[in-house]
Design a binder for these strands. Structure first.
Lengths: 207, 207
DNA sequence: TTGATTAAAACAAACGTTTAATTAATGGTA
DNA sequence: TACCATTAATTAAACGTTTGTTTTAATCAA
């Protein structure tokens, strides 16, 4: 009996394994066993283990550019409302796709696959540009303090959420969250969102 | 002619290689070549590649517990002064030892070596406890807002600096810092410290 | 019968580790 | 100091596994 879509099955299992272990720590035999397919299928469908890995990351990395752009350029929102919307969107986006962001996180921290890293950065950079402009606009229109460090505000938001998602086991222990599942619960998401909204409001808004 | 300390040479080169690449991506032959020693010397001195890796991390992970403790329990400092001192200390500590913290960062994000991860977490947790008590004390004595999220303040500081140090290539691009070396310059350190001091002051202090 | 799909086996290369042999250093004895 | 015995350090080669990938043959659906 043939499976409808073995290629999809491989991608699903690969996502789980690569989220938790390094690229080299996962063998094609591990992948084949988890997806219940023959070893040859990885090369057959993807060409190589590395191409499977790249295809997996790229396909799972949803396109967030249009959303960020529409938030950043929305004339109906004030500067602070835009920032709140970015916090919400970014928190949900990462917490909805923890596996792929763990992979991305690990790719960005090593030079094992430089071309892939470059590709990921270029995608992320587009969003950074939009949010950067958005924050500078808030300075220009008098909403935000002129001496606020907008570069660090951005990387602070990105880094902190990426870090929690990328090292869930560690983060649970540090935040006294009992299970990793609870880390992605709506309750904890609200906590994250509230924290950053208050944090940035206090830091950015004029008194 | 015998080398004086081949073991130290191996550790030095291993630190560079493991900082930039995954554990499995660095072979013992790479290590031996970089340190200019025979392959057998890794097993001879360390027992195995994995033991070398563990010994490297543990030996390079300086003991920060006594410093954090003395800051947190210093009666001469106010609560806000203690927090500022922690920001300074933590920034310098990570930026002075980027290589080992890149390794730690990567270890915390995977379950490739669970025992090592557990060991690292237990060491970090001690500091977390001290700083946590310090922040709660600030709440109790009326310095800090009672509804501030101290857990997230802590992980925010840790995560953000660890992230910048752990993914320097990426961070440079995001922060418009031209070279990785400049990321660890005094100038950029001051920027980080100033940012967090202002950020946390605005968020924590009562108005 | 054809072409797509599968499984099992085989492939060479690379892996971490060990062996066996050799050289260098050390310590005690005369 | 000179000598020998012993330990330690170093090397090249080989070890058995595991790696990612490919081949071959069989099976299946159309």
């Amino acid at each position: 009996m043939e499976q409808i879509d073995k290629k999809a099955a491989i991608l699903i299992e690969a996502e789980k394994l690569f989220a938790d272990q390094d690229f080299d720590a996962v063998s094609v035999r591990d992948l084949a066993k988890a997806a219940n397919v023959n070893i040859a299928m990885i090369s057959y469908y993807f060409g190589s283990k590395e191409k499977l890995f790249e295809e997996l990351i790229i396909s799972r990395m949803a396109n967030s550019q249009t959303t960020i752009q529409s938030i950043a350029t929305d004339p109906a929102r004030t500067s602070i409302e835009k920032l709140m919307a970015v916090v919400d969107f970014y928190t949900d986006r990462l917490m909805n796709n923890p596996n792929v962001h763990r992979m991305i996180n690990r790719e960005l921290s090593s030079s094992n696959r430089p071309e892939l890293r470059e590709l990921l950065i270029s995608k992320i950079e587009t969003n950074k540009t939009y949010i950067g402009k958005m924050l500078e606009e808030g300075k220009a229109n008098g909403t935000f303090r002129p001496d606020a460090d907008m570069g660090l505000v951005m990387i602070n938001l990105f880094a902190c959420i990426q870090y929690i998602v990328g090292s869930p086991y560690y983060s649970c222990k540090m935040l006294d969250v009992p299970t990793e599942a609870q880390l992605f619960d709506p309750e904890f998401r609200t906590r994250i969102k509230t924290y950053f909204k208050e944090l940035f409001s206090h830091y950015l808004l004029k008194k």
